[in-house]
Design a protein around this nucleic acid. Structure first.
Lengths: 166, 166
DNA sequence: AGGTGCATGTAACAGGTTACATGATTAA
DNA sequence: TTAATCATGTAACCTGTTACATGCACCT
């Protein structure tokens, strides 16, 4: 994030929440200690730029830092893809509950993905990312969430029809 | 998993790896301590059923256990959906590397999702899940991975065309 | 005789969240 | 004046992985 421009810890958190959040989140409890670690390693350097009487440390990449970034990008991409989805776990075990509960769950899943979809759309609406990388991840996010929401909707209907039959 | 039938810790691990792995993984380091915790809480009970001289503890649900399962299913579904995808993070920052690297990354992402797809297909091939819940999650998994793989393929082509133009 | 699968377990570590604490600045 | 936003930071906790250790059973 610092490679995209000088940033405070606070800035980074805001940016993450509006960009990578859906596939790589971060909390202050992670960011601030990490900034210190990166500075110790010489990958970033911070300078104090207070706003009035308010402390404020702005970080920027060092040469070592941007080299490290390029190295990381060049690493053979060993795809790390982890998902934890409690609602899908509930869907898996939904046979132990009444059929209506399963439909309700699907409805809630759809709602949740539609909400994410709205957020992504509003992001797109106000300018949207300029760089290709961020643009592609946004596109992927939109498509993915749309697909899931559609699947939920279709499955809701299918199951509702089955319940009615009885 | 124990609700689906009596199981040892080892059994659970095998089953998880062939079913919920892609949206809810588990390791032995989690399973065995958890079995002990659940037994202490009276939700499951284990009995020793050795195979020859080999120790073996089989667990089954208690009444409290199946009530707890139903309670959990009945909870208002507060959708917890977390993703950590390093390759998508790389895609996000891919502007800091050469364009070919981005295409290579996409290719690797596609390969990885196609591999998952193969696993899911072979699961489907040998019988596949009988219950509706597991069947639905399998269906979702197949669709999702297929969608991502297709998106990657399409994007690869699009970007390759852009690179050629220069 | 040896490899694979069954079976159990733990200690050390890594990664990350939550909750809390503090306080200045700015817009309503 | 008061609420929201900017800004920093940490301690306790939780969840989960990795790596290791052990040993029997079964098939070839």
């Amino acid at each position: 994030m610092i490679a995209l421009g000088k940033r405070t810890g606070y800035d980074i958190k805001q940016l993450v929440d509006r960009s990578t959040k859906n596939f790589w989140a971060a909390s202050y409890g992670q960011i601030y200690p990490e900034l210190r670690r990166l500075e110790q390693e010489g990958l970033i350097s911070g300078r104090s730029e207070p706003t009035g009487g308010r402390a404020r440390t702005v970080y920027e990449l060092t040469k070592h830092g941007s080299a490290a970034l390029r190295d990381w990008l060049a690493e053979p991409p060993e795809v790390i893809f982890e998902v934890r989805d409690e609602s899908m776990l509930k869907l898996f075990f939904s046979d132990f509950g009444p059929p209506e509960q399963r439909i309700e769950l699907l409805r809630e899943m759809r709602r949740s993905h539609e909400q994410t979809l709205d957020q992504l759309h509003s992001l797109e609406a106000d300018g949207g990312p300029q760089k290709l990388g961020p643009r592609l991840t946004l596109e992927l996010g939109l498509g993915l969430n749309q697909w899931i929401a559609d699947w939920c909707a279709a499955t809701e209907e299918r199951l509702a029809a089955d319940v009615d039959k009885e």
